[in-house]
Design a protein around this nucleic acid. Structure first.
Lengths: 176, 176
DNA sequence: TCGGGATTGTTTACTAGAAAACAATTTCTG
DNA sequence: CAGAAATTGTTTTCTAGTAAACAATCCCGA
């Protein structure tokens, strides 16, 4: 059975981009090509939109050494001190095994610390270091700007509506 | 440099799902957790929404042996006879090397045929076999139903708006 | 017409993420 | 209280997808 994870449109919780794909001027010689009915399947459209946005986002972002996933996790930790690792993983739709690697990497970089709370010694609580907090703060501005830039084809009303709809879909209608 | 492909939210053009992730009742013990400002970054929201939709979609879908990527490609081929492989790849945001594998797999399954057009012997033109067309047709209904089901939290107006916005983002505002 | 460059597709190597098995702890139940 | 079951996280293994190098064909200009 195929794993639902890697099917139609990338599934990882955090991915790069870049397009090694031999140049973008291919469709020009075969016009009038479309997906037919699939063009109107919202799930696929969502996927294609997400890919397009991330492509543009990565173009604007200049992440340096860090990956977007790491920065996102770091930020979430900095805003939720002592958050447990599993909670964080579920929040960001990152699989637990991958979160382990990610967190270990951030710890090695001195950006977060891992504690084992005495009341539940199975779990791991995360906390950002001062340096981690600084990085997370610096990251937010860049990301917000890049995000808006990547969605420049939308006006403010459309942008707001998109956000609202996405949050509703992800089950975050009003939370925080 | 990290590859923009696999960063924040899966990037493949087509992925499965499933959640091996140790059960979904983790956040219940740590309430009041949120992504902070990141909660209002549309790119990330788009990503999380896409993940949620695909998860639900795969739950409804029952794909059997085939993968969603294969069915999508098959459908596109069946609606665009003699489409060139590269055009198809760009259309679905699938990297060329992956499209090669995908197409070869469909060919081996007897669902499509590959031709080398005489006027450009570098390229490969694809065409669905009768069996391929039948499969593609059968697939559309299932997918549409599953898609609507996966987005059941949206009413019709919201669904339509989402589709419109996504198509605009992906640069398919009015095409076909 | 011929030779450099671009386009199209494939092969190979690598990486990120998913799945499954595992260990440690806690909780529930008899 | 003892043991079964569930929760939490980690390790290992595997797959899907990306990147980079390659081969073949086509195009364009001298």
């Amino acid at each position: 059975m195929p794993s639902a994870e890697a099917e139609i449109a990338g599934r990882t919780a955090m991915s790069h981009f870049s397009d090694t794909g031999t140049g973008p001027s291919v469709a020009e010689r075969q016009a009038a090509v479309s997906l037919g009915e699939l063009e109107h399947v919202a799930g696929l459209a969502l996927r294609l939109a997400q890919l397009a946005v991330f492509e543009r986002l990565f173009a604007c972002l200049e992440l340096g050494e860090m990956r977007l996933s790491e920065l996102t996790v770091l930020h979430a930790v900095s805003r939720n001190p002592d958050i447990r690792q599993g909670v964080l993983a579920d929040l960001l739709e990152i699989k637990w095994p991958n979160m382990t690697k990610l967190v270990r990497s951030l710890e090695k970089g001195g950006l977060i610390e891992r504690h084992v709370p005495p009341d539940d010694r199975r779990s791991v609580a995360l906390r950002a270091t001062p340096e981690g907090v600084r990085r997370a703060d610096a990251f937010v501005g860049t990301l917000k700007a890049g995000d808006r830039e990547a969605l420049a084809m939308l006006d403010d009303e459309e942008y707001a509506r998109l956000l609202e709809l996405c949050r509703k879909i992800a089950g975050r209608g009003a939370g925080a």
